[in-house]
């Protein structure tokens, strides 16, 4: 079987790295791709206690029922997408196992589970310093209020970003830097990457 290829394969090859990477000229914005993560799309009734408990057992965390919030379990992150719709993002390594345990959890139930992993990728934006240049970059692509007070870690938001549908996932990394993961459809990844690369040059230095 052929090796899977990330939608940003060409960017990675041009940069001589395993995955696409980018640092803005002034160093304020870093960007990299997180390829081959597991993206599992789950639908089911939020008022079905059996569905909720079995999925919770499989994931190691309860499905978030509050709009636009996330949960973190042993299997990975769980994102609220709609009142009966969730995304489970898992590390590239454990994809098959997580999918299998989810399949078992919802078997025979009024639920739907779809493996969307090959259809999506994640672009991670890391803001150096106070993160403001990185947020300014994202602000020029969408209309959300990205201030950490309004959009703190633990939230997620689906929006239209640079003319394509993107899910934003803010977080703080181990070096206390603000970062945001952008989940994007495979066919738009190249467009979004180049849009961000070009935009990042303009927001260095906080302006």
């Amino acid at each position: 079987m052929a090796e899977p290829q990330s939608p940003l394969h060409d960017v990675a090859v041009a940069g001589g790295a395993a995955a696409a990477e980018f640092v803005s000229p002034g160093g304020a914005v870093r960007m990299c791709e997180l390829p081959f993560l597991g993206h599992f799309h789950l639908r089911g009734a939020p008022d079905d206690a059996k569905f909720l408990s079995q999925v919770k057992a499989a994931l190691g965390c309860a499905l978030p029922l509050t709009p636009n919030t996330t949960a973190a379990g042993e299997a990975g992150g769980v994102l609220w997408l709609g009142p009966d719709e969730w995304w489970i993002l898992t590390a590239a390594g454990g994809r098959a196992e997580v999918l299998q345990s989810l399949e078992k959890a919802v078997a025979g139930m009024f639920a739907s589970l779809i493996d969307q992993s090959p259809g999506h990728t994640v672009i991670r934006i890391i803001g150096e310093g106070d993160g403001e240049p990185a947020r300014n970059l994202l602000r020029s692509g969408c209309t959300l209020d990205l201030h950490p007070e309004h959009f703190p870690p633990g939230r997620c938001a689906q929006t239209v970003f640079a003319k394509t549908n993107v899910t934003l996932l803010p977080a703080e990394d181990e070096k206390n830097r603000w970062r945001c993961d952008l989940v994007v459809r495979r066919s738009f990844a190249d467009h979004l990457w180049r849009w961000l690369e070009e935009g990042a040059a303009g927001v260095d230095g906080g302006g």
């Binding site: 709009p67 636009n68 709609g82 009142p83 209309t143 959300l144 938001a157 689906q158 929006t159 239209v160």
Partner: peptide, 11 residues
């Protein structure tokens, strides 16, 4: 009703 106030371009 779920996501709160959002820009018209999302609708």
């Amino acid at each position: 009703p779920w996501c709160g106030p959002r820009d018209q371009s999302e609708f």
